[in-house]
Design a protein around this nucleic acid. Structure first.
Lengths: 149, 149
DNA sequence: TAGTCTGTTCGGAACGGTCCGAACAGACTA
DNA sequence: TAGTCTGTTCGGACCGTTCCGAACAGACTA
């Protein structure tokens, strides 16, 4: 119940629900508990029992998503990967984008629906609520930054 | 760009990313713009071009998730479905649960990892940040309720 | 009771996403 | 230049999910 393997497996599950692939999620799990700050692709393949091609696309996903960054030590031959400084800040900002996207979806609905009062009221409620969250959530992030640093 | 069909299709896409099936998402789209407050299963099948078996499982998902509720008009023979009063409140609360789940994932990591300072610092940061969001987000919902009603 | 209507459950088909091994491209070494 | 190492891309296989049509179960009507 407290082994690193189990944690990595859980992380794979959790991050998969965020839209990542299972492998990408497990990579994040490894990087979270790794005593070193970084890992390299062959090591990750070995540790997770995954082909290097799959690892390549998983790491590409993570890099494009800004969750992981790639670097190469001086005089090194292979890339290393580590979590970006504010992985979690980024994850939260992605959530925020989701809020504004839903507000826009409501706008689309308002543009499409006629002038039925109930429909409009529903969609306006949706727009206002997601808009409110989209505005307030970043403030929460700022508050966290202030209280922490 | 402003037709109801397109809106329903968009809604299907958007809610699919929240973990619903495509069909369930489109059902929500229909219920959002429907001038009446409700729809019945045969009508939804007709409108979305979907088999009634698929509709049955989609509506079951939505009902179990608390997004849609089922009722039967007096002397009626068939069930009707409508969005629950605070669909969006529920959606936000689900997000909140996600936050606390990630805080717990961090706890699991802390229990599994040794005493490597960097690993612990990362995981404690994760735990604290998601914990903070899990505590503060409900307040945001309360604030919204107060300002609105 | 037989017939009709509503909704659920089941087995199989279809689809999208992920994975693997192999081929490939570029950088470095000898 | 030939050989080695690292990382990417490609085609095919696999897996889980969602869908459909059909069979089923329950409530109501005549």
């Amino acid at each position: 119940m407290a082994s690193v393997e189990e944690f990595v497996e859980s992380a794979g599950l959790y991050f998969e629900r965020l839209g990542l692939s299972r492998t990408a999620g497990r990579v994040i799990g490894v990087l979270l508990v790794d005593p070193d700050d970084s890992a390299d692709a062959p090591g990750l393949c070995e540790q997770l029992g995954v082909a290097k091609s799959s690892m390549s696309v998983a790491l590409g996903q993570l890099e494009r998503g800004g969750l992981v960054e790639r670097f190469r030590p001086p005089r090194g031959r292979r890339d290393h990967y580590r979590l970006t400084e504010d992985v979690f800040g980024r994850a939260f900002r992605a959530k925020m984008a989701e809020f504004t996207a839903f507000a826009q979806l409501a706008e689309q609905g308002l543009a499409a629906v006629g002038d039925h009062p109930k429909s409009r009221a529903r969609l306006e409620h949706m727009r206002d609520m997601y808009g409110f969250m989209g505005r307030e959530f970043p403030k929460l992030l700022d508050q966290w930054d202030r209280e922490r640093h």
